[in-house]
């Protein structure tokens, strides 16, 4: 059994081994208990400084990271981009180097450009945690999804997981495909042909535009948000038509396994990718995903705070 991650940063799920994924999930189980205490704080990261650098709007992920950092006793700093020098034209690299000159231990970065975290990883000494980069990866989301599934089903291996929605713009999809296939799940992705990446089969998943095929006997159904802000082209005729063909309704759900889990990374468009009856219904674990997000982020922060052994020293 391993007890450390190999890299100083968490840039994506692609870089993790199945053992590292299991380590994060096991550690998150211990972290989850801390959130149920009266005093929700442990001294593990006392004296560590974490900068939350968010170049894109976010409620869930930013607050989730901030709560996780505070529960581990780290000092946290939120850089709000609207009031920062970025509006004066400073580049990402310069912003990061200036923050780094103040000697933080970790930087949690969300950015609209794919690869932004990799850039910082090369120029920064601090540990970089990817909180979503463009259309590339959102690793902590995939880890919290996996944690939620494992908690209910006991395992990820052998489960049929259907991921339905805007596949082409989704970093959540990419991270989840990497994670679920590494852990042995049977992954189906489904959406309008215009929203399915052309080379998605390369990742070892089944792609379909027939929602019945994706839902049939599924153990887990994950809905992805239709990202209206990233829709420059005409991908489908109307939101109403999308809902009629791909929206998750109670009726469509009947074809899935009786103990199916409904997941959504948020924020939801009710009446577009998911009906309110399903979102608030008995199969939905959407709010549990949010609770588990804190535990999973605590696990990632804890595991990366120790650094990694240099290869030459090992």
């Amino acid at each position: 059994m391993i007890n450390t991650l190999r890299h100083k940063d968490l840039l994506g799920i692609a870089e993790l081994t199945p053992e590292e994924i299991a380590l994060v999930l096991d550690t998150a189980e211990a972290m989850k208990e801390i959130g149920s205490r009266t005093v929700k704080k442990v001294p593990a990261l006392r004296g560590k400084t974490v900068v939350n650098l968010f170049f894109e709007p976010s409620t869930r992920t930013r607050t989730s990271f901030e709560i996780a950092e505070k529960r581990l006793s780290a000092d946290t700093l939120n850089v709000a981009i609207g009031t920062s020098s970025v509006v004066k034209g400073e580049t990402l690299a310069d912003t990061a180097l200036n923050l780094e000159a103040m000697n933080p231990d970790m930087i949690v970065l969300r950015h609209s450009s794919s690869g932004a975290c990799h850039l910082l990883s090369r120029i920064c000494r601090s540990a970089i945690i990817n909180a979503g980069d463009g259309m590339h990866e959102h690793p902590t989301q995939a880890l919290l999804d996996a944690f939620t599934i494992r908690e209910k089903k006991g395992t990820l291996g052998g489960l049929k997981v259907a991921i339905i929605g805007d596949l082409v713009h989704s970093r959540v999809l990419r991270s989840n495909i990497h994670l679920l296939t590494k852990m042995g799940a049977d992954v189906w992705v489904c959406g309008p042909p215009t929203l399915i990446p052309t080379d998605v089969n390369r990742f070892g998943v089944h792609a379909t535009s027939v929602i019945q095929d994706a839902v049939r006997d599924a153990d887990v159904i994950m809905l992805l948000r239709i990202q209206l802000e990233r829709m420059e082209g005409a991908y489908f005729p109307s939101l109403r038509e999308y809902f009629n063909v791909f929206g998750m309704t109670e009726e469509r759900l009947r074809a899935a396994k009786p103990d199916v889990m409904i997941m959504h990374p948020g924020p939801m468009n009710r009446g577009v990718e998911i009906s309110s009856e399903v979102a608030d219904g008995p199969y939905s674990v959407i709010l549990e995903q949010v609770s588990n997000g804190v535990a999973v982020r605590m696990a990632v922060l804890y595991l990366l705070a120790g650094g990694v052994e240099h290869e030459e020293a090992a």
Binding site: M1, N3, T4, D26, T27, E29, A30, M31, E33, I34, V42, P43, A44, L45, G47, K48, L72, A299, Y302, L303, A305, G306, G307, V308, E309, H310
Partner: peptide
């Protein structure tokens, strides 16, 4: 589980973190 309360946590500049288990 006392791992998160250990006084030698984060003392070494680099090194693997001790495993945390559930309280």
């Amino acid at each position: 589980d006392i791992t998160l309360y250990r006084d030698d946590l984060m003392r070494q500049a680099v090194g693997p973190q001790p495993l945390v288990r559930r309280t």
